[in-house]
C-alpha cells in the first residue's frame, strides 16, 4: 500500500522538475501526424532551428516567429505513397530527408530549397525494399535493402539537389540489418543490429564487414540507437521494444552493452527500466540523444531516461486532448518534441 501511495507523487515530481512546457505548434490542416523533427534552415542570411512536421501526404517546415508562435514556411505535397518517417541528417542545413512507403520503406526523398530558381523542390534518392536507413555525418545516408536473392547495404552521398554519384557499398551480413548507428570516437566506423540479434561493425571507408557479435536471446529484436568507442571497448545503446520483464533487471527499455570488438565478448553496463506502474508491454517507439533516451509508452505517456544512471528522469502523462504518439529530441539537446495524433506538437525544455 505504501508503494502505491508513493508512486503517483514520485511521477508528478519527475514531470515538474525535469520537463517544462515551452510552446505548442498546431498544424490545423493535418489530422494524421506521422513524425516530427528539427532542422537548421537558412533564409535571407538568417539561420534558425525550424520544426518539420510530417503527415501521410505532406511535410511542413515551421519557423519560430515569436515566443510560443510558429509560422509555416512551406508545405511539400508528396503524392500517392504515404510518408513513414523523417530521417534526420546531422550537421546539415536547408535539407530534409523523408522515407515513404506502406508497410516498409519503398522510397527515400529529399526536400529542399533551390536558391537558383527561388523554389522549393523534392528529389528522389533511392527506391527499393528498404529495411533500415540512417542519416550520417557529411551529408550521407546509409540504408539496407532486400531483393529476393540478396541484401544490399549502401552509403549514398547527398548533394544540394539530391543523390550524388559517389557512394559506397558495404559488405552485407547474412541476416537483415534493422538499424544503424555511427560510432562516436572512431571515424569511419558504423554498427548495425540484425534480425537475429547480432551487432555488426563496418569500415565505412573500405566497406569491410569487420565483426559480427551476438547480443543474446534474452532481449529479442534489439535495435541500436547509439554507439561510441572508449578505452578499447565499443559501447552500444540498444532498445528492447518487446522485451519481457525479468527478475534480474526489471523491465528494461534500453540497455548499454560494452563489446570487446577484438573478441566479440560483451557485458551489460546499464539497464534503463520502465517507470513504476508501467509493467507489461513496453513502448511504441523511442529515440536516444547523447545520454538521454525518450519513448512513448503503450499507456500513452512519454518517459525520459538518463542512460548513464539507468534511471527514469521524467514522465509526461497523456495530455488533456489525448495520448502522446511521438517523441523526438531536438537537434540541439535539452529540448523535446512531443506529438499527438491530431497534429499538435508540444516543445518541452528538458533539464
Amino acid at each position: 500500500n505504501e508503494a502505491e501511495q508513493l508512486t503517483p507523487l514520485l511521477l508528478d515530481d519527475l514531470t515538474d522538475e525535469n520537463l517544462q512546457f515551452v510552446s505548442k505548434l498546431k498544424d490545423s490542416s493535418s489530422s494524421c501526424a506521422v513524425d516530427v523533427s528539427t532542422v537548421w534552415w537558412e533564409a535571407a542570411g538568417r539561420r534558425e532551428l525550424c520544426v518539420v512536421t510530417a503527415c501521410e501526404i505532406s511535410v511542413s517546415l515551421w519557423k519560430p516567429l515569436a515566443p510560443d508562435h510558429w509560422g509555416r514556411v512551406y508545405t511539400w505535397q508528396l503524392g500517392e505513397i504515404p510518408v513513414i518517417q523523417i530521417i534526420p541528417l546531422p550537421d546539415t542545413c536547408n535539407l530534409i530527408c523523408i522515407a515513404l512507403g506502406n508497410l516498409e520503406i519503398g522510397e527515400i526523398r529529399l526536400l529542399l530549397y533551390s536558391s537558383a530558381n527561388d523554389s522549393f523542390k523534392q528529389s528522389l534518392v533511392k527506391t527499393g525494399n528498404i529495411k533500415a536507413v540512417l542519416g550520417l555525418k557529411d551529408r550521407r545516408l546509409v540504408s539496407s535493402s532486400r531483393t529476393m536473392q540478396e541484401q544490399q547495404v549502401e552509403v549514398v552521398s547527398l548533394s544540394e539537389t539530391g543523390r550524388s554519384k559517389d557512394g559506397q557499398t558495404l559488405m552485407p551480413p547474412e541476416e537483415t540489418v534493422l538499424a544503424f548507428a555511427e560510432v562516436e570516437g572512431v571515424r569511419d566506423a558504423l554498427v548495425g543490429t540484425t534480425a537475429v540479434n547480432s551487432v555488426v561493425v563496418w569500415n565505412l571507408k573500405t566497406g569491410q564487414l569487420l565483426k559480427k557479435m551476438h547480443v543474446g536471446y534474452s532481449y529479442p529484436a534489439s535495435i541500436c540507437h547509439r554507439a561510441y568507442s572508449d578505452s578499447g571497448l565499443l559501447f552500444v545503446v540498444l532498445s528492447h521494444p518487446h522485451a519481457k520483464e525479468s527478475e534480474s533487471c526489471g523491465n528494461p527499455a534500453f540497455r548499454v552493452i560494452a563489446f570487446n570488438p577484438k573478441t566479440a565478448r560483451s557485458t551489460g553496463v546499464m539497464f534503463s527500466s520502465l517507470p513504476p506502474g508501467h509493467a507489461g508491454r513496453q513502448y511504441l517507439e523511442g529515440e536516444v540523444k547523447d545520454a538521454s533516451a525518450a519513448a512513448v509508452l503503450t499507456s500513452g505517456a512519454i518517459a525520459v531516461w538518463d542512460l548513464l544512471l539507468g534511471q527514469c528522469t521524467a514522465l509526461l502523462p497523456p495530455g488533456p486532448s489525448g495520448s502522446w504518439s511521438l517523441v523526438r529530441w531536438c537537434v540541439t539537446s535539452a529540448r523535446l518534441l512531443a506529438g499527438q495524433t491530431d497534429g499538435s506538437v508540444y516543445v518541452y525544455r528538458y533539464s
Binding site: V186, D188, A189, V201, N203, T206, Q208, L209, L210, K211, S229, S231, G232, L233, L234, A258, F259, N260, P261, K262, T263, R265, S266, T267, V269
Partner: peptide, 23 residues
C-alpha cells in the same frame, strides 16, 4: 567489467580488425 571477462582489449581495435578482415 574486467578484462578477463571480455578478453584482451586493444585501443586500436578498428585499425586491427580492418587489416584482418577480407577486403
Amino acid at each position: 567489467c574486467s578484462e578477463s571477462d571480455l578478453g584482451p582489449i586493444s585501443l586500436n581495435w578498428f585499425e586491427e580488425l580492418s587489416s584482418e578482415a577480407p577486403p
